[in-house]
Structure formats: C-alpha cells, structure tokens
Amino acid sequence: MRVVAAMSGGVDSAVAAARMLDAGHDVVGVHLALSRSAATLRESARGCCTIEDAGDARRVADRLGIPFYVWDMAEAFQRDVMDDFVAEYEAGRTPNPCLRCNEKIKFAALLDKALALGFDAVATGHYAQVVEGAQGRELHRAVDMAKDQSYVLGVLDADQLARSFFPLGDTTKPQIREEAAARGFAVAKKPDSHDICFIADGDTRGWLAGRLGERPGEIVDEGSGEVVGAHQGAYGFTVGQRRGLGLDRSSLDGSPRFVTRVDASANRVFIGTPDLLGVRQVVGDSVRWCGPAPTGEVSVGAQLRAHGEEVPAVARVEEGSRLVVDLDAAVRGVAPGQSVVLYKGTRVVGSATISETSR
C-alpha cells in the first residue's frame, strides 16, 4: 500500500513512519508547512511547524531512506483553523483547534491530496487504535491512556477512517522514545509540543486581542444581576474560568467566582459560584459518526474535553441533526464550541460540536 506518513518533526510521527515502512508499505514522508512565517528555531515545547521541525523530519526520512516532501497548507490552515478559532471566540464559544485541524487539514486536505496523487492512505503519530470490526474499521482508544488522542480524532468519518493508520496506538510513550533511540533518531528525546500550536507563547487572550482589538464590556454576577467588574473583550473568557477575572472578591462575599456564560452579542461576561457550573445535558451540531449512525437512545460514555474523564450518558439524535446527550453526573465548565465525543467501551462512536448546555 502507498502511504503518506505525516511527519511533524517529533518523535511520535518519526516512529509511526518507521513502523509503516517495517510493515512493508511504500512510504513517503510529508511535512506540513502550516505557517508562512514559521519561526526559525523552537524556543520551548510550545508551538510546532518551525523550520527546525521540518529539518528534524527530513533527517528522520533520510535515515529511513524514504522520499520526503514539504507540502504548503498554510492557506488552508489559516482559513479552516486559525480564522475559525478567532470567529468562534468572537461568538462567545470555546473551540478546540486540534479537532478542527484533524477534520479540515490532516484528514481532509492532506488525505484528499494524497489520494489525488495516487496514495492509498495517511499515517500519523496519533495515539489511537484502528480495529477491524464486523461493520468495518473502528476507532478505539490507545493503550496508553495518558497519551490517548482518540478524542481529537472523533471528527473522522468512516471513509476517512478507512484510509487512516495510527501505528502507535498499542504502545506507551516511554516505549516509543526507547524505540526511537534504538533506531538512532535524533528526536528520541525531543520535548512534546503542547497547547495551541499557533500561539507559541501560550497567551491566548493576548493573541485574540491582537486580532479583535479591545472591546470594553461588563462583568455581571449571575446571582445578584449586579455589574461587578469590567473587561476588555468578552472573547477573552471561557466558561469555567476562574483566573484573570480582575475582581475584588471582598465585594462578592469573598467566595470564588467562575465564568458561567459569555454573551457575545451584549459583550457581557457572567460569573457565578461553583454550583452554577454543573451541566447535565449538552446539545451538539455538526455531528460526525465514526461508522454507522446509532438509532434511538443509546447508552454511551461522553468525553467533553481532550483530557477530561468519560461520563456515563444517554445520547439520541433529534430532528435529524441535533445530538442530545444526557449526562448521569453533572460536569463543570462545559462551554459551547467544545466537542462531545461518544464512546462505547474503548470504541469511538462519534462526535458533535456543543451548541447548548443545560443544568
């Protein structure tokens, strides 16, 4: 099988490419250039897609003896991930750019280009497993639960899953680093990238302010309805946030306050006590199924954050396109724009983008 190995320049994608080659596939390494002004050198574990990363990926490909190319996808990444990220925050929602990147870039733009060039599939260094089931390929959690990335792959549909390989799903991260060292890869000890790749300094609010400008507004206490503070842009806040509110707690009986909702249309941020954060139902749109769509009510596990715990739930589809998920236990800090991913055991059933929450 002719396979494109997406090589970020990190240890995971390096070992994934090597394993695909060991399995007898015809492998070509591809590094995605996602920024037109990529930094020359990585300064920390934040960010990715630097010139240094491209060089690391090329050196691994040379060691494996496989062809290597850099594909420019900066325009698609800007439009489908970065611009979407800004628009979602501006609308008072909290997006997950990693899911959007997987949906729009790695398993859409990249996969589409690979297929157009005559390749059969794409392999990545994500920690997840593909299992051959009775109704086709299934997406499952990785063996290493600390590194499991099935949540951010929950946007894949059956056709995309049929042409995707995740060679690391049966291995732990320490074992991957040991294997990389044994293969002589210089990236064996390279730190993992984390946080949002296009906000290298981790200052999301500052990054958004540079694009949306200051938009002064009020902070309102949910309980009393009183204005208790001011902000420079509602886009800088997300449900469940406690730090950075700039409030005088002495005027609020000294109790901690959290963001309970963001009203983008009124440019208002609402805060409240922890008991107002618990959510028992979420409604989602943009539903994606990793296989046949379930019918009627189904008992599932629902995961609401990339590193959140799975919560027992009952899910159903209403009006043909709305996914309604009733949670067995209240979950705090769930925001519109985030994703709910449904599981049946270790298998990913599907996902949706949260549009509404209810206590």
Score class of each variant (00 low, 15 high):
residue 234 A to Q: 10
residue 136 G to N: 05
residue 82 M to S: 11
residue 111 L to W: 00
residue 245 L to E: 08
residue 161 L to A: 11
residue 331 V to L: 00
residue 108 A to G: 00
residue 290 C to S: 14
residue 308 G to I: 00
residue 109 A to C: 14
residue 200 A to P: 02
residue 71 W to I: 06
residue 233 G to R: 11
residue 264 A to S: 12
residue 28 V to E: 13
residue 244 G to R: 06
residue 322 R to E: 06
residue 282 V to E: 02
residue 279 V to H: 07
residue 54 A to D: 07
residue 25 H to S: 03
residue 242 R to M: 15
residue 111 L to H: 00
residue 10 G to C: 03
residue 337 G to E: 12
residue 16 A to T: 11
residue 86 V to D: 03
residue 330 A to E: 13
residue 323 L to M: 09
residue 206 G to S: 07
residue 292 P to I: 00
residue 180 A to K: 15
residue 178 E to M: 11
residue 323 L to G: 06
residue 258 F to K: 01
residue 172 T to H: 01
residue 65 G to M: 11
residue 100 R to W: 01
residue 210 G to N: 05
residue 312 P to Q: 00
residue 337 G to Y: 04
residue 231 H to L: 04
residue 194 H to S: 12
residue 176 I to F: 11
residue 187 V to D: 03
residue 149 Q to E: 14
residue 159 D to K: 14
residue 217 G to R: 14
residue 247 L to I: 07
residue 165 F to M: 13
residue 1 M to I: 03
residue 77 F to D: 03
residue 181 A to L: 13
residue 130 V to P: 01
residue 341 V to I: 12
residue 207 W to S: 07
residue 162 A to W: 03
residue 195 D to G: 15
residue 225 G to K: 07
residue 235 Y to I: 04
residue 9 G to N: 10
residue 290 C to I: 08
residue 306 A to M: 09
residue 94 T to P: 00
residue 175 Q to H: 09
residue 140 H to I: 12
residue 107 F to L: 09
residue 304 L to E: 01
residue 59 R to I: 04
residue 142 A to L: 01
residue 212 L to C: 08
residue 216 P to N: 12
residue 122 V to K: 09
residue 225 G to E: 14
residue 64 L to A: 10
residue 79 R to G: 02
residue 277 L to K: 12
residue 252 L to E: 03
residue 123 A to V: 09
residue 83 D to F: 07
residue 75 E to H: 07
residue 29 G to N: 08
residue 320 G to T: 02
residue 275 D to E: 15
residue 322 R to K: 13
residue 135 Q to W: 10
residue 129 Q to W: 02
residue 319 E to G: 06
residue 145 M to W: 13
residue 251 S to N: 11
residue 16 A to Y: 10
residue 54 A to Y: 04
residue 22 D to P: 06
residue 158 A to M: 05
residue 174 P to F: 10
residue 67 P to C: 14
residue 44 S to H: 09
residue 246 G to V: 08
residue 95 P to R: 05
residue 168 L to E: 09
residue 192 D to S: 15
residue 300 V to S: 04
residue 344 K to I: 01
residue 315 A to M: 14
residue 166 F to V: 05
residue 197 C to I: 15
residue 149 Q to I: 03
residue 249 R to H: 10
residue 133 G to R: 11
residue 214 E to P: 13
residue 108 A to V: 03
residue 352 A to H: 01
residue 13 S to V: 08
residue 226 E to D: 14
residue 286 S to L: 15
residue 264 A to L: 08
residue 110 L to C: 11
residue 290 C to F: 05
residue 145 M to T: 14
residue 264 A to H: 04
residue 15 V to C: 04
residue 87 A to T: 05
residue 214 E to N: 10
